[in-house]
Design a protein around this nucleic acid. Structure first.
Lengths: 138, 138
DNA sequence: CAGTATATGTCAAGATATTGACGTGAGTCA
DNA sequence: TGACTCACGTCAATATCTTGACATATACTG
């Protein structure tokens, strides 16, 4: 059995499983995974722009564009009206919703990491980061 | 910094990077990633059905359905005409195309795993499998 | 054996994301 | 300063995938 290609396979398998679990967990908070991801980014680094959020969430600028439109119409994020290079922040409503959603997501990820002890978790984090870096610099 | 949620983040980051790299590598062989995934499955286990291929490739039955339709019209796969529960196999053309594509994908994954020694690779494989299993059995 | 449940193939529709393209502002360098 | 490049925001169109639905075949159960 070819281990190298199998690593890609289990990587996809784990991602799909995580995505599905997050999806069901977030449904109770009326958020999709990209929406949650966007809110989380804004919580850690307020004042990000559309393009920056898109990169951090791994979607295209266009997708983030209309994702922000819905989040804004729902009153979860707030733009500073700076026509070009507009910067976004969480509203108090957005912060509240994120708090609940974040707890739900944390529970999911804890379930995912259950079989791993803290040292293994750190190793996994480091190894995945190394793999991503290796691919991103040709 | 919250390591647990960060694991989910780097997992997505690695997956996106791998997906993009595979996409560009496969473009020279006129294959999309799901198409390649389907062909690879059929190479390892000939005679799979639509639903089985869908599960192995992590897409819906419907997506695999029309994915198989295009692969069949291109002459890369061949169904045994068994109306219901039809079983699929690679054509000789499909096997040839897969050979080239498989080498390209192997090169991509080798580049991804460059920073890891064989022991680390095996660990990564085991850890990811454990994570996926933990999520898939509530 | 009859009846129910489960899984499959397939059609239609809807949602979501990507690609392409355009105008515009910011930074760079001669 | 002026030309050039690059990144950004945004509109439109295209492709892709998922959800919903239905008929049917297989498996299970009493």
């Amino acid at each position: 059995m070819d281990l190298d290609t199998a690593v890609g396979y289990v990587l996809k398998r784990a991602t799909v499983a995580l995505r599905a679990a997050m999806d069901t967990a977030l449904r109770e908070h009326d958020l999709t995974v990209p929406q949650y991801s966007c809110l989380e980014q804004l919580a850690h680094r307020p004042g990000l722009t559309n393009a920056e959020l898109a990169r951090g969430t791994f979607v295209s600028r266009q997708a983030m564009h209309q994702l922000l439109a819905t989040l804004r119409s729902t009153g979860l994020v707030h733009g500073d009206g700076g026509g070009r290079h507009e910067r976004f922040t969480l509203t108090s409503d957005g912060a509240r919703r994120l708090a609940g959603a974040s707890a739900a997501v944390a529970a999911v990820q804890e379930r995912m990491l259950t079989p791993l002890d803290p040292q293994q978790r750190q190793r996994l984090h480091a190894d995945l980061t190394a793999c991503a870096n290796a691919l991103n610099q040709p």
